[in-house]
Design a protein around this nucleic acid. Sequence first.
DNA 1: ACACAAATTGACGACGCGTCAGAAACACCA
DNA 2: TGGTGTTTCTGACGCGTCGTCAATTTGTGT
Lengths: 246, 246
Amino acid sequence: MKPSKPNKRQEIQRRERQLLETAGQILLTEGYSELSMERLADELNTAKGTIYNHFPNREEIVLAMAVQAINKRQSLFDAASTAKGGSRMRILAVGVACEIYVRSYPALFLVENLVRHASIWDRCSDARRDLMRNCEHRCMGLVAGVARSAMADGDLELPRGLSPEEMVLSLWALTSGSYLIGATSPSLPEIGIGSVYRSVRIGILHTINGFNWQPIWNLDEHEKRIHETTDSVFPDEPSLPPIEDA
Amino acid sequence: MKPSKPNKRQEIQRRERQLLETAGQILLTEGYSELSMERLADELNTAKGTIYNHFPNREEIVLAMAVQAINKRQSLFDAASTAKGGSRMRILAVGVACEIYVRSYPALFLVENLVRHASIWDRCSDARRDLMRNCEHRCMGLVAGVARSAMADGDLELPRGLSPEEMVLSLWALTSGSYLIGATSPSLPEIGIGSVYRSVRIGILHTINGFNWQPIWNLDEHEKRIHETTDSVFPDEPSLPPIEDA
DNA sequence: ACACAAATTGACGACGCGTCAGAAACACCA
DNA sequence: TGGTGTTTCTGACGCGTCGTCAATTTGTGT
């Protein structure tokens, strides 16, 4: 005997999903300043007070979106860390995951960065901040784990005093820093930068080579493996363009 | 016959300097949300309307601070590009300049990042945005110039299809990305990262080595030259701590 | 059918933004 | 020095958004 009238509880959860959905939509297409509580209430055909039953303020909504975002990122990293072919292939797959993430889920990437700002972060609840921190922690752990396994396999030897996490920070920063600059620096082409994606692929390759992570690949080998990885590890995601066309 | 009563024009300029000064102070110590026009007016003992004679809105004040910031950065890069000892020493000096910048002028670094946000950037005048873009452009040009000279000297050969600017983007992203993560990711230590500065120094070294920029240095040589550079190129700035103590 | 609990509503006070008409300060000249 | 036109300053005001809460509606259990 299933309830013909859907449970109130489910109804509320459904609305919360829809709330985050439309919030993301507004954020991506119209920007942060357009994301007001009034607007959200209108869009969902409820009163403002109802929105406040879900989230205590606007910032917490953004953080909730960021948690979703980093969960998605983590699921991509999870897939990446299953790549066959040794640690070098796995760290490559992580790089591929990042490019897929930025290309296919621009709203998630945007929100992940938004939330770094003190004016948003500071107004959120500890509970949700912990959630975010934990996800971030797990992502880092996943990638650092790849580095650790590389060390265990003898494919990688880190300089004295550098932890795997600190090494991963370089890759993380290079990647997300580049994409961030790409997304926020207007007119990169006229500054001499054709494609941020190409720059990241090559930059990451040389950084990993610079750390002497075995095997060392050249650009063609690297590029070939990127596309192999895309197809085998991320069959459900749209495939990446060749390096020549950005 | 110098005017005993200072010119009104000067008085206004003086106030504008003071305005940016106190705005930076508030931003650094109390955060963006505390930076209100009312607050600034109070702090400067003027009426709100007077502030609006200087800047058309809050965002433009932040952008004006960012322009100051990037000018400071450029002056450090200028000094860096005079370093003796070949292109490898000059690019190292740029790295040193970045670390000095972040350590000694945290308010400037903060503001440079703040302004990347659409909600601020979009509300600013084209005139000042151009100013910002030009400064950024010049900074990039300076560093890319170092790479170009390295290529001319035969110290560096870039992979096919990669411009010097795109290579510099990797260094830029690694550096500013790391510092940004360091400044905004709470509890890095518990995530396994002791010192962002150390991570950046080592990451940059290996990335540059990875691009096969001659001469190749090991960690000790690199570290030694960092401190030489700090003293010879930036004698007026506080010197950098050894890599062991962050 | 009734009573209790939970969720919803929108009017409300507070606050910061940006404006603008009037007041004050200033510069210039006779 | 006094008069006049211009620049600068001022703060009260209108507006929009935030977050609250008492009143109301809706849901649930007996």
